[in-house]
Design a protein around this nucleic acid. Sequence first.
DNA 1: CAAGAGATCATCT
DNA 2: GATGATCTCTTGA
Length: 193
Amino acid sequence: MKLTRSFYQQSTVDVAKQLLGKYLVRKHPDGACIGRIVETEAYVGPQDLACHAAKGRTQRTEVMFGPAGHAYVYFIYGMYNMLNLVTEAQDYPAAVLIRAVEPVRGVELMKQRRQNGTPRNLASGPGKLCQAFDIDRTLDGADLCGKVIYVEDRDEPMPKFQATARIGVDYAGQWKDKPYRFLVQGSEFVSKR
DNA sequence: CAAGAGATCATCT
DNA sequence: GATGATCTCTTGA
């Protein structure tokens, strides 16, 4: 069953952990893609120097300030999109970055969209994932309680996971070492070990 | 296998 | 005008 808005209204770290083992669903005219979430990162609010919202409320971060249960998609490094799920209360800017999924359905479609299409390399990173699932800024602000993109709970028990520091946020001072990155233990499909 | 560089542009100063 | 929640390719051992 589809996760409801109240799921996303919980604390960001809890949402990031609980998303492991759930299923990201992306409906598309070319066909649906589904992946089992195996890696997430929490960006916990305006005081978190790694969070875009630490720089204040701007046009880009507006979605994060909105209600929980919406997609925050942004463009980075001149070529990649990143998918986040907005969490917590209205006007509190926080979100979970989806970093990697295990391809489950629509694998042929993912292969077409990516050059090197070994199953392990299709969605094992936030940029790769968005390429494989054809997620770009037209989905920024999309409602996760809608039909185009959402997360399914298939009643799996929460997988064993480990927590590490987040990737690529060396500029974030004291916040760069916080254990806000969560990985399914032993998964072949995470971005790095 | 590890390390390093280059690609490339929206966003904010 | 600088920079980034990344990826791929090349180099060298």
